Structures are given as structure tokens and as C-alpha cells.
Amino acid sequence: MSITSSRNPSVPEGYSPVTAGQLATVVTCLDMTERPVPGAVALPPGVTLEHEAAPAPAAYRQLYRLVGEDWLWSSRLVMGDDELIAILHDPRVEVHVLRSGGAPAGILELDFREPDACEIAFFGIAPAFTGSGLGRHMMHRALELAWSRPIARLWLHTCHLDHPAALAFYQRTGFRPYARMVEVLDDPRLSGILPLTAAPHIPLLR
């Protein structure tokens, strides 16, 4: 579902306290409405991007943790199997796994459930491959896969909990910011969804 911009009078200007045990982050929504000029999409030798049809929840969560634990990804970890399967096995949702030398290196999830649109629901590289350039190659493939469908809009969102270079990377790719909002959520490390050692750069407030 698309995120639209609206002014929320419950978020006043200035500082607002955040309850201990919660996180607050600024979310930026970005989109593109025209297919970009094709770029180089060839992956390096030994690197593949494989479509995983109807992945099993356990295998999906393992990859999701590998890529997203440092950035406190947790939304798919709190879902029950039935809810997660309903998403992953929907033919309008595509999960692609980036592999390097056979080892999982990244995840790309494309969601075509909104008419005439595609959301890059999840996009990330495993920590061992950060800075390798594989993210750039995977994004080229993501654009090619998304725009191979009859869509009018491709969109995604990122936040301050993601890699600090993520927003600039998406803008260089051709995405344009169109909305900003504040998200407040329970810290998944304190509920045991993620280990206390996850994302050490983000302080724990108990």
C-alpha cells in the first residue's frame, strides 16, 4: 500500500519525549514515475540474483535477520507463519536472493499488490558485503525487474535506522523524496525479537 503525505497535528514542532523502550525514527518516502535509462546490470562473476518462489518462513526469516539485524528490521519477525506465508506466497510478491559464491549476500523483495505500482519492500546487503558494490548491481536488477511489468510508479521508503548511506544511494539511483513522517516503535531488542547486541550504534533506553 502506498504511503501518502499528511500533516499530523499530534506531532508538535520542537522536541517530543519518546518513552523508554521505544525508538523514534524519521521515515522518508521516495518514488520514480518513469522507467530510468537502462544501465549496466551484469552481476560480477560468482554473484547471482535468484528468484525464490514461495520461500519457507524459516528460511526467509534467516535471510531477513542476516541482512537487517544491524538496522533493527523486525516487522517480518513478529508475524506469525500464516500471515507471513500469505505475503510471501502471493504471486504478486517476488523475493529475490543475492548470492556470492553460493552464500546469501542480500535480499530484494518486490511487491506488485498495489495496482499499477511496485514497492521495493525490502532491499539490503549482508554486513560482510557492505561496500562491495553489490548493492548498486542489485539495484540495477531491481529496476529492470520492476519496470518489466506494466507499472506507472516504483516506490520505497527508508529511515534513520537504516544504513546512513541508504537515502543518498536511493536518490542517486533516481528516486525522488515525496513525503516524510515520524515512526515510533517498540525497540525489538528489549522484547527479545532481536538480540541486545544488535545495532550497537543505536543506544538502548530501558
Score class of each variant (00 low, 15 high):
residue 1 M to S: 14
residue 2 S to A: 10
residue 5 S to I: 05
residue 6 S to F: 15
residue 7 R to G: 07
residue 11 V to R: 15
residue 12 P to I: 06
residue 13 E to C: 07
residue 15 Y to F: 14
residue 16 S to A: 15
residue 18 V to I: 15
residue 20 A to M: 12
residue 20 A to I: 10
residue 20 A to N: 12
residue 22 Q to T: 12
residue 22 Q to F: 11
residue 23 L to E: 01
residue 23 L to S: 01
residue 25 T to V: 11
residue 27 V to E: 11
residue 29 C to K: 00
residue 29 C to A: 13
residue 31 D to H: 13
residue 34 E to L: 13
residue 34 E to R: 15
residue 34 E to V: 08
residue 37 V to A: 11
residue 41 V to K: 08
residue 43 L to H: 12
residue 45 P to D: 13
residue 45 P to Y: 03
residue 45 P to K: 06
residue 49 L to N: 04
residue 50 E to Y: 03
residue 50 E to W: 02
residue 50 E to Q: 07
residue 53 A to Y: 04
residue 57 P to L: 03
residue 57 P to G: 03
residue 58 A to L: 05
residue 60 Y to E: 03
residue 60 Y to A: 02
residue 61 R to A: 03
residue 63 L to T: 05
residue 66 L to Q: 09
residue 67 V to C: 06
residue 68 G to R: 00
residue 69 E to K: 04
residue 70 D to C: 08
residue 74 S to Y: 04
residue 76 R to H: 15
residue 78 V to P: 02
residue 80 G to C: 07
residue 80 G to T: 08
residue 80 G to D: 15
residue 82 D to Y: 03
residue 82 D to G: 04
residue 84 L to I: 09
residue 86 A to F: 04
residue 87 I to R: 02
residue 89 H to M: 04
residue 89 H to S: 06
residue 90 D to W: 05
residue 94 E to W: 01
residue 98 L to H: 00
residue 98 L to P: 00
residue 98 L to E: 00
residue 99 R to I: 08
residue 100 S to N: 13
residue 104 P to T: 04
residue 105 A to F: 05
residue 109 E to H: 07
residue 113 R to S: 08
residue 115 P to N: 10
residue 115 P to H: 10
residue 121 A to Y: 09
residue 121 A to W: 07
residue 121 A to N: 11
residue 121 A to P: 03
residue 122 F to Y: 13
residue 122 F to C: 09
residue 123 F to K: 01
residue 124 G to S: 09
residue 125 I to K: 00
residue 125 I to W: 00
residue 127 P to Q: 09
residue 131 G to F: 12
residue 133 G to M: 09
residue 135 G to I: 05
residue 137 H to F: 09
residue 138 M to V: 11
residue 143 L to G: 00
residue 143 L to W: 01
residue 145 L to M: 08
residue 145 L to T: 05
residue 148 S to Y: 03
residue 152 A to K: 10
residue 153 R to V: 14
residue 154 L to H: 07
residue 156 L to Y: 02
residue 156 L to I: 09
residue 158 T to A: 05
residue 158 T to C: 10
residue 158 T to D: 02
residue 160 H to M: 14
residue 161 L to Y: 01
residue 164 P to G: 10
residue 164 P to F: 14
residue 166 A to G: 09
residue 168 A to C: 07
residue 171 Q to P: 06
residue 173 T to S: 13
residue 173 T to D: 07
residue 174 G to W: 04
residue 175 F to I: 02
residue 176 R to F: 05
residue 180 R to Y: 06
residue 181 M to T: 15
residue 182 V to A: 13
residue 183 E to M: 14
residue 183 E to S: 14
residue 185 L to C: 14
residue 186 D to G: 14
residue 190 L to I: 12
residue 190 L to S: 07
residue 191 S to W: 11
residue 192 G to Q: 13
residue 195 P to C: 13
residue 196 L to N: 04
residue 202 I to Y: 09
residue 202 I to G: 10
residue 205 L to S: 12
residue 206 R to E: 11
residue 206 R to C: 05
